[in-house]
Amino acid sequence: MARRGRFRANIVARPGTLAAVLAAVLAHVSLGGDVAIVPRSLARCVTVPDVEYREIAGKAVPSEVAMAYRRFERAPAVRAYLDFAASKI
């Protein structure tokens, strides 16, 4: 994103999970700690005090989401979720 905007990013955190984004990055931003780039899906459903989301101009940047589950899962709720997730691919 920095390259697209022709600036040099000062990266202070690289959270690896969505939970880490919620806990660390957005809390840091709400306390006045700079800016963060987060997925649109997160911005649409998470409200944090003093955080304002803005669209980034230009072509969307693709990202990946991975899911781990037991190969022979039998729980109906888990099977339903797996079917739902597969239908969104």
Score class of each variant (00 low, 15 high):
residue 1 M to H: 13
residue 1 M to G: 07
residue 1 M to V: 09
residue 1 M to Y: 12
residue 3 R to G: 01
residue 3 R to I: 01
residue 4 R to G: 00
residue 5 G to K: 14
residue 6 R to S: 07
residue 6 R to K: 15
residue 6 R to I: 02
residue 7 F to P: 00
residue 8 R to E: 10
residue 8 R to I: 00
residue 9 A to V: 00
residue 9 A to R: 08
residue 9 A to E: 04
residue 11 I to L: 11
residue 11 I to V: 14
residue 16 G to C: 05
residue 16 G to N: 14
residue 17 T to S: 14
residue 19 A to T: 10
residue 20 A to H: 11
residue 20 A to K: 14
residue 21 V to L: 04
residue 21 V to W: 04
residue 22 L to I: 00
residue 22 L to V: 01
residue 23 A to Y: 05
residue 27 A to R: 15
residue 27 A to F: 03
residue 27 A to I: 01
residue 28 H to A: 15
residue 31 L to I: 04
residue 31 L to Y: 12
residue 32 G to I: 04
residue 32 G to S: 10
residue 33 G to W: 11
residue 33 G to T: 13
residue 34 D to L: 07
residue 35 V to P: 00
residue 35 V to F: 12
residue 35 V to I: 12
residue 36 A to E: 06
residue 36 A to F: 03
residue 36 A to K: 06
residue 38 V to P: 01
residue 38 V to N: 07
residue 40 R to F: 04
residue 41 S to W: 09
residue 41 S to F: 08
residue 41 S to C: 04
residue 43 A to D: 03
residue 43 A to P: 01
residue 45 C to D: 08
residue 45 C to N: 12
residue 46 V to Y: 07
residue 48 V to G: 03
residue 48 V to R: 13
residue 49 P to G: 09
residue 49 P to Y: 14
residue 51 V to Q: 04
residue 51 V to W: 05
residue 52 E to F: 07
residue 52 E to W: 11
residue 54 R to L: 08
residue 55 E to A: 12
residue 55 E to L: 09
residue 56 I to D: 02
residue 57 A to E: 13
residue 58 G to D: 05
residue 58 G to K: 10
residue 59 K to D: 12
residue 59 K to M: 11
residue 59 K to T: 15
residue 59 K to N: 12
residue 60 A to V: 08
residue 61 V to T: 15
residue 62 P to M: 06
residue 62 P to T: 12
residue 62 P to V: 09
residue 63 S to F: 11
residue 63 S to M: 06
residue 63 S to D: 05
residue 64 E to N: 08
residue 64 E to F: 03
residue 64 E to A: 08
residue 65 V to Q: 07
residue 65 V to F: 02
residue 65 V to S: 03
residue 65 V to N: 03
residue 66 A to R: 14
residue 68 A to P: 00
residue 69 Y to L: 03
residue 70 R to C: 01
residue 71 R to F: 05
residue 72 F to T: 14
residue 72 F to C: 06
residue 72 F to H: 15
residue 74 R to M: 08
residue 74 R to F: 02
residue 74 R to G: 02
residue 76 P to R: 15
residue 77 A to Q: 14
residue 78 V to M: 12
residue 79 R to Y: 06
residue 82 L to K: 12
residue 82 L to M: 08
residue 83 D to M: 10
residue 85 A to P: 00
residue 87 S to V: 09
residue 89 I to G: 10
